[in-house]
């Protein structure tokens, strides 16, 4: 387990500044998720921690040791890649034990450690198979196994679930969270999928163009987004953002309301329009409405909804659920 500290880290690729100046503390034993849209620099930060990229400036500290200029193998980290990066010519057992083989650990000890890891990840029956004989989920587990074997201080995950289908992704999310609880290691996880971030993280770091927008627990970010960017990025479906007259009523430039806080009313409400699209998800229904003067407004209704596309709809919301923003930042003052 290790604490990771990034102090004024900068990264440039030629003239292109990817990380202008970033400072971050990743607490010991935490599951920290770096999340953000494509090109926001999240994978670059992970690669900087891993030592696969050299920082242009700043310091990277793992457990009080400055690792900024250390080789990847000397940083006591392990990384799981999006492509799994399993060695195709080696068996599962050889893949898992490769790091130990390189470290010249005795064959007996490697075998013991590989068996332990295989047991944790339920890979015992697959140890003699080659990666091409495994399913996506099994390959993912082998990649995680390879990381665990080395007893690293920090685990780094670079979008490890993005190649899996939806159901397997859900299953692996649970398995990874359980694994974290079991081995209590520091994990840094990169994803662009905010559902993964919300469901797995102790701490989420939202990034935008190489700059941290907000750091906090998933519910902090969901309930109290510091900026319009975070408000829009966290939550699915996205927060409804309204401006104009309705925002002025609340003394702000932009007013945000989560879809689950939009109520459908029988009488005329604040927002009146017609239904553009309905998505029935089973447990709840998403209603997309066209309201004159606003972008599409989404409402989440529990259960089924007996309405159809084109019907007139009246929406309202409680003022305790509004998020107010001016100049892109959250307003916390009373109104």
């Amino acid at each position: 387990m290790g604490q990771v500290i990034l102090k004024s880290v900068q990264k440039k690729f030629g003239d292109l500044e990817v990380i202008p100046n970033l400072s971050l503390i990743i607490p010991k034993g935490s599951f920290t998720v770096l999340v953000g849209p494509s090109g926001c620099g999240k994978s670059t930060i992970l690669r900087l921690i891993a030592g696969l990229e050299d920082a242009t400036g700043g310091e990277i500290i793992i457990d009080d040791i400055d690792v900024t200029h250390l080789e990847p193998s000397k940083r006591k980290i392990a990384m799981v890649f999006q492509s799994y990066a399993l060695y195709p010519h080696m068996t599962v057992a050889e893949n898992i034990g490769f790091g130990l083989t390189l470290a010249k650990v005795s064959k007996k000890d490697i075998q013991k450690r590989v068996s332990e890891v295989a047991k944790i990840l339920q890979l015992e029956k697959l140890l003699q198979r080659k990666p091409k004989q495994l399913s996506g989920g099994q390959r993912q587990r082998v990649a995680i196994g390879r990381a665990i074997t080395r007893n690293p201080k920090v685990f780094l995950f670079d979008e490890p679930l993005s190649n899996l289908d939806a159901s397997l992704r859900g299953q692996m999310r649970v398995e990874l969270t359980e694994l974290h609880a079991q081995i209590k290691a520091t994990m840094v996880y990169v994803t662009h999928d905010q559902v993964e971030a919300m469901t797995m993280a102790d701490q989420i770091v939202v990034l935008n163009q190489g700059v941290i927008e907000q750091v906090g627990t998933p519910m902090d970010l969901y309930d109290f987004p510091d900026s319009l960017f975070v408000a829009r990025f966290i939550g699915s479906p996205k927060m409804n953002i309204m401006e104009g007259e309705i925002a002025e009523k609340y003394f702000c430039q932009k007013l945000g309301v989560r879809p689950e806080h939009m109520e459908i009313s029988k009488e005329e409400g604040l927002l009146n329009g017609s239904i553009r699209h309905i998505e029935k998800l089973g447990a709840d229904t998403l209603v997309y409405s066209e309201i004159k003067g606003y972008d599409t407004i989404t409402a989440r209704v529990v259960g089924n909804l007996e309405m159809k596309i084109g019907d007139t709809i009246h929406l309202r919301f409680d003022k305790k659920h509004v998020h107010r923003f001016s100049n892109g930042n959250r307003l916390n003052t009373q109104f």
Binding site: A50, L52, P72, S73, Q82, A85, Y87, L102, R146, R150
Partner: peptide, 14 residues
């Protein structure tokens, strides 16, 4: 060849 393989082996200590 996939670049990830080389990076993975570097992290593994090769």
């Amino acid at each position: 060849l996939p670049k990830d393989l080389i990076e993975a082996s570097r992290i593994d200590g090769a």
